[in-house]
């Protein structure tokens, strides 16, 4: 057994569930009402977690493997770290600070890369291809660039992994491509990849008390009790990093670090054209089809 610990990082994000947008999701002024949207584990990131855990399964007999989750967001994002621990992740960090507010993808990838750098030498960074609240798919390649490591995007399947190389099948628009590379590497995982394994009953029992300092304060639990528990079981402490902790160039964070600015936003107003109502009856539908045929549309 190799003594060197193989380090895997998963970049994950808690996102508003844009697929379950209810009527109260938009405020009167047309801005999004985040409080009305349930927060979920970004679906592609869950698949990235699965690929990370599959690597761990494949490598754990030859060397120790650690899977660390990094998430940037409000303190409640600790939820997805706990969720990851129930499925096999070892630990996680919530990177949270008001000074990150207004970050575009460039400032976000800068902060994330600074957090990854703080962990030291990393072998693989996994992330979902894109987040459902932005759909830009930019953060993965940008973190790879900032870490100065190669990137493999749209990973659909992990074909092989050993201590010095990885073989991945990528999903392209018109087919698949199989690529091989060494470490370190950043891999973004496509939505077609394997679903994440369910929670493991034993891990759920072991980790259900895992939480962060912010969560203890929010729940108004006794900090002393938690400190005592963390002293006995340090893995139950979900660490929180603020901007100072990741040693950044502060100019590159948040709004000042974001080159893109929103110039204006417009509520979508539908332009109505002449609309003909057709009754759901055989005769009216028949008339419509006849009209389309005679107009050479069909």
């Amino acid at each position: 057994m190799n003594n060197k610990e193989f380090q895997i990082v998963v970049l994950a994000k808690q996102v508003p569930d844009t697929h379950n947008v209810g009527k109260d999701a938009m405020k009167e002024d047309g801005t999004i009402n985040r409080a009305a949207l349930p927060a979920i584990f970004n679906p592609d990131d869950l698949k990235a977690l699965e690929m990370a855990l599959a690597c761990k399964d494949a490598l754990k007999d030859i060397m120790p493997v650690k899977v660390t989750i990094i998430t940037m967001g409000p303190s409640r994002a600790a939820e997805i770290i706990r969720e990851s621990m129930f499925r096999g992740a070892d630990n996680g960090f919530v990177v949270s600070d008001r000074r990150f507010a207004g970050s575009d993808t460039l400032a976000t990838s800068y902060a994330l890369s600074a957090a990854v750098k703080k962990l030291g030498k990393i072998d693989i960074v996994f992330s979902g291809r894109q987040a459902i609240d932005g759909d830009t798919a930019q953060v993965g390649p940008q973190v790879a660039e900032k870490l100065e490591i190669p990137q493999i995007t749209y990973a659909e399947d992990l074909l092989y992994v050993a201590e010095d190389e990885i073989v991945i099948k990528r999903r392209l628009e018109r087919g698949v491509e199989t690529v091989k590379t060494g470490f370190p590497v950043l891999v973004t995982v496509h939505g077609n990849a394997n679903d994440c394994r369910p929670r493991h009953a034993k891990l759920l029992m072991t980790n259900k008390k895992a939480c962060s300092v912010s969560e203890v304060l929010e729940r108004q639990q006794s900090m002393e009790d938690m400190e005592a528990l963390w002293a006995k079981k340090p893995f139950l402490k979900i660490e929180e990093w603020n901007a100072d902790d990741i040693n950044p160039d502060f100019e590159r964070l948040g709004l000042t670090g974001s080159p893109t600015k929103v110039k204006s936003i417009e509520n979508v107003v539908l332009t109505s054209k002449e609309n003909k109502k057709i009754n759901n009856s055989e005769s009216e539908i028949n008339e419509l089809m006849k009209e389309l045929v005679s107009a050479h549309i069909i």
Partner: peptide, 14 residues
């Protein structure tokens, strides 16, 4: 995105 990151410039998707 990798180019925008390297040049530290803005990129708008889609």
């Amino acid at each position: 995105p990798r180019i925008a990151s390297y040049l530290r410039c803005g990129l708008t998707a889609d």
